[in-house]
């Protein structure tokens, strides 16, 4: 990635979303903005093309707007870029067999954790007398007395 950044430094600096890029049709422009937030600037460090000031990001913003103006749906415009840059260009990874773990993992984890917590709750038995020596008990009691209810 450091290598990519080095490449990026050789590109002339530009700015994220410039006035001259924008489409006249506000609805189309809004779609383009929303889409560009989900597309990665491939030469940057985890930036969307909407945020990035890399020249390549600007070029891709322009291409994206051309596709939308030509009548592409959001999906078609994305597919156009995926065909060139691969899934790497999507900040929202596609839901596929090899990303099920990513997309459903969190909720599986929640369910699993919930089940473990539930099982632990059911198993919880009255405590065996704490294995404390009388001195420790006294000290603990002293500590707890300090605490206002």
């Amino acid at each position: 990635m450091r290598f990519l950044l080095a490449l990026f430094l050789f590109a002339a600096p530009a700015w994220a979303v410039l006035p001259d890029e924008r489409l006249a049709d506000p609805a189309l422009e809004a779609r383009a903005r929303a889409l560009s937030k989900e597309l990665r600037c491939v030469v940057c460090h985890n930036e969307s093309i909407d945020d990035s000031n890399a020249t390549l990001a600007r070029d891709i913003r322009i291409v994206l707007r051309e596709r939308l103006a030509a009548g592409d749906s959001d999906g078609q415009a994305k597919a156009y870029l995926v065909a060139r840059y691969g899934d790497f260009v999507l900040l929202r990874p596609p839901v596929r067999a090899d990303t099920y773990l990513l997309w459903f993992g969190p909720f599986a984890l929640l369910a699993l954790g919930g089940a473990v917590a539930f099982a632990a709750q059911r198993r919880r038995k009255p405590a065996a007398p704490a294995p404390l020596t009388p001195e420790e008990q006294a000290r603990l009691a002293a500590l707890l007395r300090e605490e206002p209810k």
Partner: peptide, 14 residues
Amino acid sequence: RDGRTGIDFGLYGV
């Protein structure tokens, strides 16, 4: 000039 062929190739940089 406009880098369009570059994008078609999936170019990252030169």
